[in-house]
């Protein structure tokens, strides 16, 4: 009986393990367990490939001009560097800054206001948003079904050339799940790899970061996955209340999701509306221009004091979160047909 139990345990373990295909996805040593439930959407090479093809294909937009990668470019940490607000079809401009993409398997809530509660459903938001792709998932599926290339790719991935919304969204999730960024200098230092260590500035910056920033930008993902009001004066044109739009609770007014800081060096401009062009401006905001309002994060109620040298050191540390292997990874880039 005991033997049977052990065997059963081993089988369960093997099945659970199999749904995480380590060639496509792995859990870095310094990371916690992922949030995404892979048993409902086990990774396969064909599905990831299909997801990547969809990610880079403007067929997802109404006039076939905008793809996911229009605002999420691999070389710049999957965001749109130098653009404060996201761009859509017909030169339309959205209301928020496109976030960088990485480590999405550890993310339990999506979008600046937490409008989307599951990675599988995330792509629906930009596809349907009037200022982004302005398309419907039903019509995307219709367009894909007309394409011989996609019928082949869906057949290879799902053993069924009949295209559905479920299969389309699951494959986009699969590609996004493979975007693991965990080979920055920071990670190597933490994992004590090959005698890599912080230099003097980075080490000082790391200590300052732990005292002043880490309660919201929690290691190793550099976000606590919560919503905070970080003291930005509301933009009078955008008039964006953030999380309150979803929860309708006054206590959520002006709160936005805490973004991860991985690859932050490349993901400028910063904040939900892209108002700050550089990390220097971000740190200036936290020390000098925090806007007082009832929902302001308690961590920011007392003035943050940092010298100019402190700021330089913090930025030196933040640069250690840049993951060149991730940014240059050919697997994440479009195939050359």
């Amino acid at each position: 009986m005991k033997k049977l139990f052990v065997i059963l345990c081993l089988i369960t373990f093997a099945v659970a393990f199999k749904s995480i295909n380590d060639e496509l996805f792995y859990i870095p040593k310094n990371f916690p367990q992922p949030v995404y439930d892979f048993t409902n959407n086990p990774l396969s090479k064909e599905k990831v490939e299909l997801g990547k093809t969809l990610f880079y294909d403007p067929i997802l937009s109404k006039d076939n001009t905008i793809s996911c990668s229009s605002c999420h470019l691999s070389y710049t940490a999957f965001t749109h560097t130098d653009h404060d607000l996201s761009h859509g079809i017909e030169n339309r401009i959205g209301t928020r800054n496109a976030p960088s993409l990485a480590n999405l398997a550890w993310s339990k809530i999506f979008m600046w206001d937490g409008a989307v509660h599951h990675l599988d459903m995330q792509a629906l938001a930009p596809i349907s948003n009037h200022d982004e792709m302005d398309e419907t998932i039903a019509n995307v599926v219709f367009k894909l079904q007309q394409s011989k290339k996609y019928r082949k790719l869906f057949y290879a991935a799902f053993n069924d050339s009949l295209i559905t919304g479920e299969h389309t969204l699951k494959s986009i999730s699969q590609f996004m799940l493979t975007l693991v960024s965990a080979n920055s200098k920071y990670d190597k230092v933490m994992r004590k790899e090959a005698n890599i260590s912080f230099n003097e500035y980075e080490a000082k910056g790391y200590e300052l970061f732990k005292t002043n920033c880490a309660s919201c930008h929690k290691e190793p993902l550099f976000t606590n996955n919560e919503f905070e009001n970080n003291g930005l004066e509301p933009d009078k044109f955008l008039n964006d209340g953030g999380r309150i739009k979803i929860t309708k609770k006054a206590e959520d007014s002006l709160k936005f999701k805490v973004p991860s800081l991985r690859n932050v060096e490349l993901s400028y401009p910063y904040m939900h509306d892209g108002r700050f062009k550089s990390l220097q401006m971000v740190l200036f905001h936290y020390t000098e221009s925090v806007y007082q309002s009832p929902t302001l994060s308690h961590q920011l109620k007392n003035k943050m004091v940092l010298s100019e040298n402190d700021k330089i050191n913090i930025i030196a540390f933040l640069r250690t979160l840049t993951d060149e292997e991730f940014l240059q990874n050919k697997k994440f880039q479009p195939n050359q047909y």
Partner: peptide, 16 residues
Amino acid sequence: GVLGGELDPTKGMYWT
């Protein structure tokens, strides 16, 4: 997460 059949988001009964 995303589901198929009657629950497929293409049915027009899912908020995006």
